[in-house]
């Protein structure tokens, strides 16, 4: 259940940034989470209420932008979508690839008042 650590990381970022902006609470938080980031959204949603309790995020709306996985084959340079790390290149079937997108785990923006 590393999602609790992740949620607390989000809370820390939100608290720090809200303070910096001299704001008192967050109304909307936008997160970018890649499909290959290793985050179970169900678990994140489950721990969310207890993680944000008594923080600037307590009443914030959480918006999650899912980023689909994308890789580039090292052998034939083909770019292709992936949903698993073990997906092979559709063109040459090589498993050697660089991950271009899908590992994101970011706080994109906060709307504070």
């Amino acid at each position: 259940m590393h999602e609790l650590s992740v949620a607390l990381g989000i809370v820390k970022i939100a608290e720090d940034e809200t303070k910096k902006a001299n704001a008192s609470t967050v109304e909307l938080i936008e997160l970018e989470i890649g499909e290959l980031a290793g985050i179970e959204l169900e678990s994140l949603n489950f721990v969310w209420p207890s993680a944000v309790k008594d923080t600037v995020l307590e009443n914030a709306v959480k918006k999650i932008i899912i980023i689909k996985g994308k890789a580039k084959c090292i052998d034939c340079d083909t770019e292709f979508g992936i949903t698993h790390f073990y997906d092979a290149c559709p063109k040459c079937e090589s498993n050697f690839k660089g991950i271009l997108k899908g590992k994101e785990l970011r706080v994109k923006a906060l709307e504070v008042v």
Partner: peptide, 12 residues
Amino acid sequence: KTVLEIEQDILQ
């Protein structure tokens, strides 16, 4: 309202 563009890695 103020929108803060953070773009910060959660595991930073």
